[in-house]
Protein backbone atom coordinates (compact mmCIF):
# COMPACT_ATOMS: atom_id res chain seq x y z
CA UNK A 1 0.00 0.00 0.00
CA UNK A 2 2.61 2.43 -1.00
CA UNK A 3 -0.08 4.34 -2.84
CA UNK A 4 -0.01 6.91 -0.12
CA UNK A 5 3.34 8.28 -1.17
CA UNK A 6 2.98 7.63 -4.82
CA UNK A 7 -0.22 9.51 -5.40
CA UNK A 8 0.98 13.03 -4.90
CA UNK A 9 3.62 12.57 -7.52
CA UNK A 10 1.51 11.16 -10.25
CA UNK A 11 -1.11 13.68 -9.36
CA UNK A 12 -4.26 11.87 -10.16
CA UNK A 13 -5.66 8.57 -9.29
CA UNK A 14 -6.72 6.91 -12.46
CA UNK A 15 -6.24 9.79 -14.79
CA UNK A 16 -2.54 9.51 -15.07
CA UNK A 17 -1.82 7.54 -18.21
CA UNK A 18 1.73 6.92 -17.16
CA UNK A 19 0.50 4.95 -14.20
CA UNK A 20 0.29 1.82 -16.28
CA UNK A 21 3.92 1.61 -17.17
CA UNK A 22 6.39 -0.44 -15.26
CA UNK A 23 7.62 2.23 -13.08
CA UNK A 24 8.27 5.35 -14.97
CA UNK A 25 5.93 7.35 -12.89
CA UNK A 26 5.97 5.18 -9.90
CA UNK A 27 9.57 6.08 -9.55
CA UNK A 28 8.07 9.44 -8.91
CA UNK A 29 7.92 8.25 -5.36
CA UNK A 30 11.66 8.67 -5.36
CA UNK A 31 11.50 12.28 -4.63
CA UNK A 32 8.51 11.90 -2.51
CA UNK A 33 9.56 9.31 -0.02
CA UNK A 34 8.20 11.60 2.58
CA UNK A 35 8.66 10.71 6.17
CA UNK A 36 9.42 7.43 7.69
CA UNK A 37 5.93 6.50 8.66
CA UNK A 38 5.07 2.84 8.70
CA UNK A 39 2.01 1.58 6.93
CA UNK A 40 0.50 0.42 10.17
CA UNK A 41 0.65 3.94 11.52
CA UNK A 42 -0.94 5.22 8.35
CA UNK A 43 -3.80 2.77 8.66
CA UNK A 44 -4.35 3.64 12.29
CA UNK A 45 -4.21 7.35 11.56
CA UNK A 46 -6.73 7.10 8.77
CA UNK A 47 -9.02 4.98 10.91
CA UNK A 48 -8.85 7.43 13.80
CA UNK A 49 -9.92 10.19 11.46
CA UNK A 50 -12.94 8.26 10.21
CA UNK A 51 -15.63 9.88 12.36
CA UNK A 52 -18.47 7.47 11.76
CA UNK A 53 -16.27 4.47 12.44
CA UNK A 54 -14.83 6.05 15.56
CA UNK A 55 -18.23 6.91 17.06
CA UNK A 56 -19.47 3.44 16.14
CA UNK A 57 -16.48 1.99 17.89
CA UNK A 58 -17.26 4.06 20.98
CA UNK A 59 -20.90 2.98 21.01
CA UNK A 60 -20.04 -0.65 20.42
CA UNK A 61 -17.37 -0.69 23.10
CA UNK A 62 -19.74 0.78 25.65
CA UNK A 63 -22.39 -1.76 24.74
CA UNK A 64 -19.95 -4.61 25.09
CA UNK A 65 -18.74 -3.29 28.43
CA UNK A 66 -22.30 -2.79 29.52
CA UNK A 67 -23.24 -6.33 28.55
CA UNK A 68 -20.28 -8.10 30.07
CA UNK A 69 -19.25 -5.87 32.97
CA UNK A 70 -22.47 -3.98 33.60
CA UNK A 71 -24.36 -7.15 34.41
CA UNK A 72 -21.97 -7.76 37.27
CA UNK A 73 -22.80 -4.50 38.94
CA UNK A 74 -26.50 -4.59 38.27
CA UNK A 75 -28.02 -5.87 41.49
CA UNK A 76 -31.00 -7.59 39.88
CA UNK A 77 -30.05 -10.93 38.35
CA UNK A 78 -31.54 -11.87 35.00
CA UNK A 79 -33.03 -15.11 36.24
CA UNK A 80 -34.87 -14.00 39.38
CA UNK A 81 -38.55 -13.26 39.04
CA UNK A 82 -40.29 -10.75 41.24
CA UNK A 83 -43.42 -8.70 41.55
CA UNK A 84 -44.46 -6.93 38.42
CA UNK A 85 -44.58 -3.22 39.14
CA UNK A 86 -46.64 -0.82 37.04
CA UNK A 87 -47.42 -3.51 34.48
CA UNK A 88 -43.68 -4.02 33.94
CA UNK A 89 -43.23 -0.67 32.21
CA UNK A 90 -39.74 0.75 31.58
CA UNK A 91 -38.74 3.17 34.30
CA UNK A 92 -35.93 4.80 32.33
CA UNK A 93 -36.50 8.41 31.32
CA UNK A 94 -35.99 8.28 27.62
CA UNK A 95 -36.47 12.01 27.21
CA UNK A 96 -35.42 13.28 30.64
CA UNK A 97 -35.76 16.99 30.01
CA UNK A 98 -39.48 16.93 29.17
CA UNK A 99 -40.87 16.31 32.62
CA UNK A 100 -38.08 18.31 34.17
CA UNK A 101 -36.97 15.77 36.72
CA UNK A 102 -33.69 14.94 35.07
CA UNK A 103 -32.29 11.59 34.08
CA UNK A 104 -33.55 8.63 35.99
CA UNK A 105 -32.88 4.95 35.60
CA UNK A 106 -35.57 3.84 37.99
CA UNK A 107 -35.81 0.40 39.39
CA UNK A 108 -36.32 -1.48 36.15
CA UNK A 109 -34.99 0.70 33.37
CA UNK A 110 -36.14 -1.67 30.64
CA UNK A 111 -39.19 -2.78 32.60
CA UNK A 112 -40.05 -6.32 33.62
CA UNK A 113 -41.24 -9.34 31.75
CA UNK A 114 -44.40 -11.28 32.55
CA UNK A 115 -42.85 -13.20 35.40
CA UNK A 116 -41.32 -10.10 36.93
CA UNK A 117 -37.69 -10.56 35.83
CA UNK A 118 -35.75 -7.37 35.40
CA UNK A 119 -35.73 -6.88 31.68
CA UNK A 120 -32.56 -4.79 31.70
CA UNK A 121 -30.66 -7.76 33.11
CA UNK A 122 -32.34 -10.12 30.68
CA UNK A 123 -31.46 -7.93 27.72
CA UNK A 124 -27.84 -7.61 28.80
CA UNK A 125 -27.63 -11.36 29.18
CA UNK A 126 -29.12 -11.74 25.72
CA UNK A 127 -26.66 -9.24 24.31
CA UNK A 128 -23.84 -11.24 25.88
CA UNK A 129 -25.05 -14.36 24.16
CA UNK A 130 -25.52 -12.69 20.80
CA UNK A 131 -22.17 -10.96 20.83
CA UNK A 132 -20.34 -14.11 21.88
CA UNK A 133 -21.98 -16.13 19.14
CA UNK A 134 -21.33 -13.47 16.53
CA UNK A 135 -17.70 -12.90 17.45
CA UNK A 136 -16.88 -16.59 17.63
CA UNK A 137 -18.75 -17.27 14.40
CA UNK A 138 -17.12 -14.35 12.64
CA UNK A 139 -13.62 -15.31 13.71
CA UNK A 140 -14.05 -18.99 12.92
CA UNK A 141 -15.57 -18.16 9.54
CA UNK A 142 -12.75 -15.74 8.74
CA UNK A 143 -10.21 -18.39 9.61
CA UNK A 144 -11.85 -21.04 7.48
CA UNK A 145 -12.36 -18.61 4.62
CA UNK A 146 -8.78 -17.39 4.77
CA UNK A 147 -7.32 -20.89 4.83
CA UNK A 148 -9.47 -22.13 1.98
CA UNK A 149 -8.93 -18.99 -0.06
CA UNK A 150 -5.19 -18.99 0.56
CA UNK A 151 -4.71 -22.63 -0.39
CA UNK A 152 -6.91 -22.22 -3.40
CA UNK A 153 -5.19 -19.10 -4.66
CA UNK A 154 -1.68 -20.23 -3.87
CA UNK A 155 -1.69 -23.75 -5.25
CA UNK A 156 -4.19 -23.14 -8.02
CA UNK A 157 -4.78 -26.11 -10.30
CA UNK A 158 -6.62 -29.07 -8.88
CA UNK A 159 -6.69 -27.75 -5.30
CA UNK A 160 -8.29 -24.58 -6.53
CA UNK A 161 -10.81 -26.32 -8.72
CA UNK A 162 -11.93 -28.70 -5.98
CA UNK A 163 -12.17 -26.09 -3.23
CA UNK A 164 -13.91 -23.51 -5.36
CA UNK A 165 -16.46 -25.96 -6.70
CA UNK A 166 -17.31 -26.82 -3.10
CA UNK A 167 -17.76 -23.13 -2.40
CA UNK A 168 -19.92 -22.76 -5.50
CA UNK A 169 -22.17 -25.58 -4.42
CA UNK A 170 -22.52 -24.25 -0.90
CA UNK A 171 -23.40 -20.86 -2.31
CA UNK A 172 -26.43 -22.26 -4.04
CA UNK A 173 -27.97 -23.61 -0.85
CA UNK A 174 -30.21 -21.16 0.99
CA UNK A 175 -28.25 -20.21 4.04
CA UNK A 176 -30.99 -19.89 6.59
CA UNK A 177 -32.55 -23.15 5.60
CA UNK A 178 -29.31 -25.01 6.04
CA UNK A 179 -28.59 -23.36 9.36
CA UNK A 180 -32.04 -24.20 10.55
CA UNK A 181 -31.66 -27.82 9.62
CA UNK A 182 -28.24 -28.02 11.19
CA UNK A 183 -29.34 -26.45 14.43
CA UNK A 184 -32.23 -28.91 14.62
CA UNK A 185 -30.05 -31.84 13.79
CA UNK A 186 -27.32 -31.03 16.29
CA UNK A 187 -29.03 -29.56 19.26
CA UNK A 188 -26.12 -27.55 20.44
CA UNK A 189 -27.45 -25.49 23.28
CA UNK A 190 -24.15 -23.77 23.96
CA UNK A 191 -23.08 -20.54 22.33
CA UNK A 192 -20.00 -22.14 20.80
CA UNK A 193 -21.91 -24.86 19.02
CA UNK A 194 -24.32 -22.34 17.59
CA UNK A 195 -21.49 -20.14 16.53
CA UNK A 196 -19.86 -23.02 14.66
CA UNK A 197 -23.05 -23.70 12.75
CA UNK A 198 -23.26 -20.10 11.65
CA UNK A 199 -19.56 -19.98 10.87
CA UNK A 200 -19.76 -23.03 8.66
CA UNK A 201 -22.08 -21.11 6.39
CA UNK A 202 -20.70 -17.61 6.11
CA UNK A 203 -17.04 -18.24 5.26
CA UNK A 204 -17.72 -18.56 1.56
CA UNK A 205 -17.38 -14.92 0.52
CA UNK A 206 -14.20 -14.56 2.54
CA UNK A 207 -12.74 -17.56 0.79
CA UNK A 208 -13.45 -16.01 -2.58
CA UNK A 209 -12.02 -12.63 -1.62
CA UNK A 210 -8.83 -14.08 -0.17
CA UNK A 211 -8.41 -16.40 -3.13
CA UNK A 212 -8.61 -13.49 -5.54
CA UNK A 213 -6.03 -11.58 -3.53
CA UNK A 214 -3.72 -14.57 -3.40
CA UNK A 215 -4.03 -15.12 -7.10
CA UNK A 216 -2.81 -11.63 -7.82
CA UNK A 217 -0.20 -11.61 -5.05
CA UNK A 218 1.23 -14.84 -6.35
CA UNK A 219 2.28 -13.09 -9.52
CA UNK A 220 4.09 -10.36 -7.63
CA UNK A 221 7.79 -10.36 -8.08
CA UNK A 222 8.57 -10.45 -4.40
CA UNK A 223 6.83 -13.79 -4.15
CA UNK A 224 8.82 -15.00 -7.11
CA UNK A 225 11.93 -13.65 -5.43
CA UNK A 226 11.14 -15.71 -2.34
CA UNK A 227 10.80 -18.79 -4.50
CA UNK A 228 14.08 -18.01 -6.17
CA UNK A 229 15.67 -17.88 -2.74
CA UNK A 230 14.43 -21.38 -2.09
CA UNK A 231 11.72 -20.51 0.41
CA UNK A 232 9.16 -23.25 1.01
CA UNK A 233 5.37 -22.98 0.57
CA UNK A 234 4.69 -22.41 4.25
CA UNK A 235 7.22 -19.65 4.46
CA UNK A 236 5.95 -17.94 1.33
CA UNK A 237 2.34 -18.11 2.44
CA UNK A 238 2.85 -17.00 6.02
CA UNK A 239 5.68 -14.56 5.65
CA UNK A 240 5.13 -13.02 2.27
CA UNK A 241 1.51 -13.39 1.31
CA UNK A 242 -0.67 -13.35 4.42
CA UNK A 243 0.76 -10.10 5.79
CA UNK A 244 -0.21 -8.47 2.54
CA UNK A 245 -3.86 -9.45 2.84
CA UNK A 246 -4.31 -8.45 6.49
CA UNK A 247 -6.49 -5.55 5.40
CA UNK A 248 -8.96 -7.77 3.58
CA UNK A 249 -8.97 -10.29 6.40
CA UNK A 250 -9.75 -7.70 9.06
CA UNK A 251 -12.45 -6.05 7.00
CA UNK A 252 -14.10 -9.31 6.12
CA UNK A 253 -13.97 -10.39 9.76
CA UNK A 254 -15.97 -7.34 10.84
CA UNK A 255 -18.49 -7.85 8.09
CA UNK A 256 -18.87 -11.52 9.02
CA UNK A 257 -19.43 -10.65 12.68
CA UNK A 258 -22.24 -8.31 11.82
CA UNK A 259 -23.69 -10.86 9.44
CA UNK A 260 -23.49 -13.45 12.18
CA UNK A 261 -25.45 -11.24 14.58
CA UNK A 262 -28.25 -10.87 12.08
CA UNK A 263 -28.28 -14.54 11.14
CA UNK A 264 -28.40 -15.55 14.74
CA UNK A 265 -31.29 -13.19 15.34
CA UNK A 266 -33.12 -14.44 12.29
CA UNK A 267 -32.64 -18.08 13.24
CA UNK A 268 -33.77 -17.49 16.78
CA UNK A 269 -36.73 -15.54 15.56
CA UNK A 270 -37.71 -18.45 13.39
CA UNK A 271 -37.58 -20.58 16.49
CA UNK A 272 -34.32 -22.44 15.95
CA UNK A 273 -32.17 -22.50 19.01
CA UNK A 274 -28.71 -21.23 18.45
CA UNK A 275 -27.97 -20.41 22.03
CA UNK A 276 -29.89 -20.17 25.25
CA UNK A 277 -29.70 -16.44 25.73
CA UNK A 278 -29.74 -14.15 22.78
CA UNK A 279 -31.37 -10.98 21.63
CA UNK A 280 -33.02 -12.75 18.77
CA UNK A 281 -34.52 -15.25 21.09
CA UNK A 282 -35.95 -12.46 23.26
CA UNK A 283 -37.53 -10.87 20.24
CA UNK A 284 -38.99 -14.22 19.31
CA UNK A 285 -40.31 -14.90 22.79
CA UNK A 286 -42.00 -11.55 23.18
CA UNK A 287 -43.23 -10.94 19.68
CA UNK A 288 -46.70 -11.84 20.92
CA UNK A 289 -46.45 -9.14 23.55
CA UNK A 290 -45.89 -6.53 20.88
CA UNK A 291 -49.28 -4.94 21.37
CA UNK A 292 -49.48 -5.17 25.13
CA UNK A 293 -45.93 -4.63 26.32
CA UNK A 294 -44.00 -3.44 23.27
CA UNK A 295 -40.81 -2.65 25.24
CA UNK A 296 -40.20 -6.36 25.64
CA UNK A 297 -39.89 -6.50 21.88
CA UNK A 298 -38.21 -3.16 21.24
CA UNK A 299 -35.27 -3.26 23.62
CA UNK A 300 -33.61 -6.38 22.21
CA UNK A 301 -34.59 -5.25 18.72
CA UNK A 302 -32.85 -1.91 19.16
CA UNK A 303 -29.81 -3.65 20.58
CA UNK A 304 -29.54 -5.90 17.54
CA UNK A 305 -29.82 -3.00 15.12
CA UNK A 306 -27.34 -0.81 16.96
CA UNK A 307 -24.74 -3.55 17.31
CA UNK A 308 -25.01 -4.62 13.68
CA UNK A 309 -24.88 -1.06 12.42
CA UNK A 310 -21.88 -0.19 14.56
CA UNK A 311 -19.92 -3.19 13.37
CA UNK A 312 -20.76 -2.37 9.77
CA UNK A 313 -19.60 1.20 10.15
CA UNK A 314 -16.40 0.05 11.79
CA UNK A 315 -15.89 -2.30 8.86
CA UNK A 316 -16.37 0.61 6.47
CA UNK A 317 -13.86 2.66 8.39
CA UNK A 318 -11.33 -0.15 8.34
CA UNK A 319 -11.75 -0.67 4.64
CA UNK A 320 -11.19 2.99 3.97
CA UNK A 321 -8.19 3.00 6.27
CA UNK A 322 -6.61 0.04 4.52
CA UNK A 323 -7.48 1.16 1.03
CA UNK A 324 -7.59 4.93 0.77
CA UNK A 325 -7.99 4.84 -3.01
CA UNK A 326 -11.43 3.38 -2.67
CA UNK A 327 -12.52 6.21 -0.40
CA UNK A 328 -11.58 8.78 -2.92
CA UNK A 329 -13.68 7.19 -5.60
CA UNK A 330 -16.67 7.22 -3.35
CA UNK A 331 -16.45 10.84 -2.39
Amino acid sequence: MTTEIVEPASGGVDLDPTDQSIGVDRVAADGMAVKARSQRQMVIRRFLRHRLAMSSLAVLTSMVILAYVGLWFWDLPYDRSGTVVDGGRSTIDLIPWIDGDGFQMGQHPFGQDNIGRDYFAVTLKGAQGSITVAVVAGLVATTIGTIVGALSGYFRGLTDTVLMRIVDVLFTIPLLLLAAVLSRRFDTGGAIGGALIIASLIWLTTARVIRAEFLSLREKEFVEAARALGAGHTRIITKHMLPNVVGSIVVSATLLISAAILIEAALSFLGFNITEFSLGRQVQTYRTAFNTRPWLFWWPGVFIIVIALCINFIGDGLRDAFDPKQTRVRQ
Binding site: G11, G12, L15, P17, T18
Partner: peptide, 12 residues
Protein backbone atom coordinates in the same frame (compact mmCIF):
# COMPACT_ATOMS: atom_id res chain seq x y z
CA UNK B 1 12.85 15.37 -17.21
CA UNK B 2 12.94 12.38 -14.94
CA UNK B 3 9.89 10.83 -13.35
CA UNK B 4 8.20 12.96 -10.76
CA UNK B 5 9.57 16.22 -12.11
CA UNK B 6 6.09 17.43 -13.04
CA UNK B 7 6.37 17.20 -16.80
CA UNK B 8 3.19 15.21 -17.29
CA UNK B 9 1.22 17.14 -14.71
CA UNK B 10 1.95 20.43 -16.44
CA UNK B 11 0.47 19.24 -19.71
CA UNK B 12 -2.48 17.51 -18.15
Amino acid sequence: GESGCGKSVSSM
